[in-house]
Simulated assay, not measured.
Amino acid sequence: MTQNVLLTGGTGFIGKHLTDVLIEAGYSVSVLSRSDRENTPRVTYYKWDLNKDYIDENAVLNADYIIHLAGEGIVEKRWTKKRKKVLAESRVKPVELIHSVLKRHDKKLNAFISASGIGIYGAVTSHKICTEETPPADDFLGMTCQVWENAADTIESLGIRTVKIRTGIVLGKDEGFMKKVAPSFKAGFGAVLGTGKQYLPWIYIEDLCQIYCKAVTDDQLHGPYNAAITDNTTNSRFSKILASLYGYTIWLPKAPSFILKIVLGEMSEAILTGQRVSSEKIQKTGFEFQCTDLEKALINCLK
């Protein structure tokens, strides 16, 4: 019998790619959506509304696995007090709704897999290499990721294998991070941000999807895993390679940190800082990254 994987955030950048990968691997896919959508031969849609604390319970009851990707974009808007609340609640509320259904019906999943972020290690730049054992930071990014993961732990408390994927910058064609940075570079106005020394741990979209698939298929996986290439890429290196692929050398001066702080407010921390992370734990499970060269990854994004 075909096993079903339910996705939250299934209509987003990562969710759309992951849907294709899961279907190719032989799973059926269901997606929770805020809007009414017609089912397709490939995907079954279920309705939910976080503002009304509503979820179609059949989505959860019919699932063998749940992958939680939903959450408002961290760098979409300034971090006002209201926005910070939205960023946290958009990640935690879905888990609360799912938890309530699982507990009420004593439903046992094969696994619950939640997105998280390397932001859990904090908005700082240092030479320290962060592993899954590194304590969460007490700044906004660190605390947001921590409450995100704490929510996932409530599913684990029900006796369900739970995996947390701490994701770096995801690179993919015309979407996600590239959708934000590529236009200015393509126009010839690429620039290094701040000092440029901040690390930029990245992962190609296909590798990320394969990590999620491994979390589904390998019942030995549990707890947190860093999902990022360990190659010490900095914002400066990333910017110079991207500019070169568009046929020029960066000519603009570095975008001053103080200007970005004025324009973006506290959110500038997510852009002006970055730590190194280790991917050793996920690799020890037998997972092999297929795209480890930044230039090749960016070429794939620009095709």
Rank of each mutant, 00 (worst) to 15 (best):
V192F: 10
Q198P: 13
T134F: 01
G159R: 07
T162D: 04
T162G: 01
D207C: 08
T144K: 10
E132V: 10
N150A: 01
D207W: 06
D138W: 03
K173T: 13
I155D: 04
S184N: 11
D153H: 12
T134R: 00
L158Y: 12
P183G: 04
T162H: 12
V170S: 00
W148M: 09
P183T: 15
Q210K: 15
K164S: 07
S184W: 12
L193H: 07
T162R: 07
T144C: 12
T167Q: 04
V163W: 14
V147L: 11
A137C: 03
S157E: 08
T131L: 08
K197W: 04
L141K: 08
G196L: 11
V147F: 02
M143Y: 11
V170G: 00
I165T: 07
E133R: 12
T144E: 11
L158S: 01
K128L: 10
D139R: 09
A191V: 04
A191L: 08
K186R: 13
P136Q: 13
G168A: 10
C145I: 05
M178T: 11
W148D: 06
Y199G: 00
I205F: 01
G142K: 04
L200C: 13
G168F: 03
Y204C: 10
Y204G: 04
D207H: 07
A152D: 03
L158K: 12
I205M: 05
G172T: 15
I203K: 03
L193K: 09
D138G: 03
K128D: 14
K179R: 13
P135D: 06
T162L: 09
V181R: 10
I169D: 01
Q198K: 07
P135G: 06
R161S: 08
K164T: 13
K197I: 00
R166F: 03
G188I: 14
Q146G: 00
L208R: 14
I160K: 03
K186S: 08
R166N: 00
G172F: 08
A187S: 14
F185N: 07
F185L: 11
F140R: 14
P135H: 09
E133Y: 05
C209I: 15
Q146L: 08
G188Y: 05
F140L: 10
V170Q: 00
V147H: 09
T144Y: 03
A182G: 01
T131V: 10
T134G: 06
G194H: 08
A151P: 02
K173P: 03
S157I: 15
D139E: 13
A137M: 02
